[in-house]
Amino acid sequence: MVEALREAVVGSLNSIKQIAIIVIPLMIAMEILKDLGFLDRIADWLSPIVRIFGMKKESAFPLAIGIIIGLSYGAGIIFKAAKEYQLSRKDLYLITYFLVSAHAVFEDTAIFAALGVSASLLLLTRLSVAAIFTFLASKAIKDTEKGVNL
């Protein structure tokens, strides 16, 4: 019993330390990138891609926010952007389908990388699979030209 407790205390503290070493610098780097306008840059890169999905090019901005910041923190901004840019319901659905499969990708990847998993493998797989999946969804969902009403 004492043995097990010692194992739990030492092991858990070690894992937390390992994760803190990766997550804290990553979060600082992300704030720096945000202030350098990185989100807009990512949105620019995503614009041609969302066009392939048949989405309005402005969809790229809420998509970039979700990919980087995540669903829970990003949800408010995503709603706001959807309203502001008058995205169609289909656009919003596709954004959500992409984001449920890939969101907060840097944070999630970092905590798995702390356990030794290859970060680039995780990141590339997740983003490309989410893109393929969204493309398939874009073919499957019927276009309703209704605007978003949130």
Partner: peptide, 19 residues
Amino acid sequence: PYPTNSVTTDTLKRGLKSG
């Protein structure tokens, strides 16, 4: 929501806080 600013100590503080 994220205007292009310059990087200040405030940036670093925010990053440290969220980390």
